[in-house]
Simulated scan of single mutants.
Amino acid sequence: MNKAKIIELPLTAYEEVHDLQKRLVSMRLSGELDGDVVILVEHPPVYTLGKRGGRENIVVSEGFLKEQGISVVQTERGGNITWHGPGQLVAYPIVHLDEARMGVADFVGALEQVMIETLDALGVSARSDAVNRGVWVGDAKIGSVGIRVNHGVSFHGLALNVAPDLTFFSWINPCGLAVSMTTAEQELGRKVSMTAARCEMKRAFGTLFFEGLVETTLNELNGFPSALCGAGT
């Protein structure tokens, strides 16, 4: 598999990045974009619903959420309700699964492995679970996966709890489960740098999915970006 391009965004509204993903999927399908792209980002606090729904798993009132300034967004990804917010590292891989000769189950497993390897590099031992998808530390969930595939091209992706405020998860049943959530910081008992987490996740993607990653911006997608983080060089 060739090198993929990676776009790193600052804290950006979920809806804005959702629209970006859909544009990139269209570009990938039309051939305007000739390779895969990974978006790394953090979002302001937001709850997102999957194809299985999830509004019934909100355990606080709609009025309370409005007071907190948190929106609830319906999406087309698989799964149930989840939360995104600062301190959570989110990756959206726009990958042509047909070209990569990768099935959906293998793709989801690889996304879980990206989180496991990222956590391992940070000092946290985690595992996947064939029944309840995502990444776990003991019985606590630390990473989630939810994707959609459009004519063979993936979007949506993974969310890894590096250092978020877990209070937001107490207002829902995450992924429709009565489950406790954890973070890398909580497991290690110390501060964890989001910059370090981003770099380790980029390395994991470069190793597991691609022959390295190259940094780009939205304006450079058809240009010649520089090598990122030493991956594949």
Rank of each mutant, 00 (worst) to 15 (best):
P44I: 12
V37A: 02
D34R: 12
P45V: 00
T75M: 06
E56R: 15
G87A: 11
V41L: 04
V73N: 03
V38T: 05
V72M: 07
R77S: 04
R55V: 14
H43K: 11
Q74G: 10
D34P: 12
N80F: 12
G87D: 07
V46N: 02
G63H: 10
R52M: 12
G63F: 06
G87I: 07
G78E: 02
G79F: 11
E56S: 15
R77V: 05
Q68S: 14
E42L: 04
N80I: 06
T82R: 01
P44T: 11
G50D: 01
F64W: 11
I70Y: 05
Q68D: 10
V73A: 00
P45C: 08
H84Y: 01
E67R: 15
E42M: 11
L65H: 06
T82S: 07
I39T: 05
G87T: 09
V41N: 00
G69L: 07
N57A: 14
V38I: 15
G87V: 09
G53T: 08
V41D: 00
G63N: 14
G50P: 02
V38R: 06
G78F: 00
G53Q: 08
I39M: 10
E42C: 13
V37P: 00
V41P: 01
I70R: 03
G50E: 00
H43P: 09
G54V: 02
V41Q: 01
G31S: 11
V60P: 05
V46F: 02
G79K: 13
Q74N: 15
Y47S: 02
L33W: 01
S61N: 06
D36T: 01
E62R: 12
D34Y: 08
E62D: 13
N80K: 14
S71F: 12
K66S: 14
K51R: 14
L40W: 07
V59E: 07
G63E: 15
S71R: 15
R77C: 02
P45Y: 07
Q74E: 15
L65N: 06
R77H: 02
E42I: 09
E32T: 11
K66D: 13
F64E: 13
Q74M: 14
P44C: 12
E42R: 08
G53D: 07
V73I: 14
T48F: 07
W83L: 11
P86N: 09
I39H: 05
P86E: 13
L33D: 00
L33V: 00
V72P: 03
G31N: 11
T75L: 01
G87Q: 09
G85T: 07
N80Q: 13
G69D: 10
L40H: 07
G79A: 12
L49E: 04
E56N: 15
G85F: 02
